[in-house]
Structures are given as structure tokens and as C-alpha cells.
Simulated assay, not measured.
Amino acid sequence: MIAFAGNSLLCRAALRDTDIDAATFTTVRLVSGALTLWLLVAARRLGPVSAGGSWLSGLALFVYAGAFSFAYLGLTTAMGALLLFGAVQITMISVGHWRGDRMQPLQWLGFAAAFGGLVGLLLPGLSAPPLLNSVLMISAGIAWGVYSLRGRGAGEPTLATAGNFVRSVPFTLVLSVLSLSMLGQFRLDTAGVGYGVASGAITSALGYAIWYMALPALKAATAATVQLTVPLIAAVGGILLLSEPLTLRLVLAGLAILGGVWLVIQQKQRQPLPLR
């Protein structure tokens, strides 16, 4: 979750404080992630990268990363996080419910507390966001939900993540070409590229590999609820790294989010095993 929050902070810093454009940032992020994972797979001798992941997961990864970058051109960080993780929760819990992955009453209470804390942290005082950017961020959330759900049975985590990143590269190269030809945008910036490389190689490539390792042990609803901590972690990172203020609202919302997540996970662990 710290890695996921790091992506928000790095993307925000790059698009706010440097001259790099959204398509180029996305391409730098995914290409550097693919190279990092390719080297890691080769070092561990896990086999050919083409043996891991799938084109559908690679496409979902690209849609998330591209929509995420472009959405933040017109959204505040708080509203973007709310739209993104709201869409993730709806996607993962809906699919989990359809598959029979039901939550117990106390788990629903924990989820409601966590989501209520998230809303309390992000929603008040925000103006209505632009429709196009909102749709892009919701699309990013749906794509990330799909990517996470597909990761539960993807095989060896590092190999699967590497395969997905490599397959996302052709999509993001096309995005950069389209951005240049249709929008006239191709702006490189040393600091922006640095943020993109850090986002791709560290908080994306390594973070997602760890996430794929954890997913098989989590129910869809639990995985969705745990991700509610990401906006809180990003807010704390903003305080420490971007000089954003610490407020009582942040403290109370953090308690609600972390308490709700704890309740969901504890109830999952206490559920009796099925009789055989």
C-alpha cells in the first residue's frame, strides 16, 4: 500500500512541478517498470518473460496507468483518489459478490467505517471535478480492480508482473505517438523523467510484484478494503514530503480507515473453515 501511495505522490509531483506531459510520464513509468522486472526475472532465472502474465492484464495495467496520469491533469489529488479507490472498491466487491465471496455483517460494518473515513478525509470542501477527468479516473479504478482480480491466479508473482509490464509497453508507445500527433504534446523534463523512473521501477514494478504475492491469500472484499488505506498514506506522505498541513480531520479519518480495515481482516481470520 505504501508503494501504491508513492505512485500518487510521484505522479502529482511530476505533473504539478515539472514540464513532462501525461503520456510521456506514463510511458517512462511503464517502460522503466518493464526493464526493472525483466532484469529481476533474468537474475532469478524464472524463465522467459513471455511465459508470465497475459495481454488482458497488460492492457488493464496500461489503461490504469494512462487514465491515472491524464485524469490528474484536471483533478485535485483528493478528488482523484476518492474517484479511483471508489471505483476499485465497487469493481472488486461486485465481482467478489458475484463469485460468492460474501462479507459477514461485521465486515460490512468495518468496510463502511473505512469508506466513511475515506469520504470524510477527501470529500468536504472539494469543488465539482471536470466530467472527462472524472470518467478517466473511474476508468483507472475499474482497470486496477480488474488487474488485481486477475492477479489472484496469475502464477509466479514476479514473472506474471514482468509479463504484464512488458505487454503494456506497446500500448503506451502508441499512446505517446497519439499524444504527439493529436495533441502536439511530447515534453521531456529531467526531474519529470526521474519521477517516472522511480514510479515505474520502484513503486510500480516492485510494489505490484509484492501485491501479486499477497493476492492469493486475500478475498476480493478484503483486498479491496485494504486498498482504502492508500489515500491516507498518500495524505501523510503529502504532509512529510510536500508540506501539506496535518489536521484533526486527517487523524480522525485515519483512525476510521485503519480501524475498519482491521475489523474486516480480523473477521476474515475468525471465520470457521468449511467442513470436509
Rank of each mutant, 00 (worst) to 15 (best):
F4D: 00
A5V: 08
L10H: 02
D21P: 09
A23D: 12
F25V: 05
V31G: 05
V31C: 12
R44V: 06
L46D: 01
G53W: 00
W55D: 01
L59Y: 03
Y64N: 12
A65P: 06
G74T: 04
V88A: 07
I90Q: 03
M92A: 04
M92G: 03
G100C: 01
R102H: 11
Q107K: 08
W108Q: 00
W108N: 04
L109F: 12
F111K: 00
A113I: 05
F115H: 01
L118K: 00
G120D: 00
L121F: 05
L122E: 10
G125K: 05
S127R: 12
A128R: 11
A128P: 00
S134L: 08
V135W: 09
A140G: 14
G141N: 05
W144F: 05
G145P: 09
Y147Q: 11
G153F: 11
G153Q: 15
E156R: 09
T161R: 13
N164C: 10
R167G: 04
S176D: 09
S181F: 02
R187P: 03
I202V: 15
Y208A: 12
A209K: 07
A220C: 01
A221E: 04
T222L: 13
T229C: 13
L241W: 11
L242N: 11
T247E: 10
T247W: 08
L248M: 13
L248A: 13
L250T: 08
A253G: 09
G259P: 11
V261T: 10
W262Y: 11
V264R: 00
Q267E: 14
Q269D: 12
R270H: 09
Q271E: 15
P272D: 10
L275R: 14
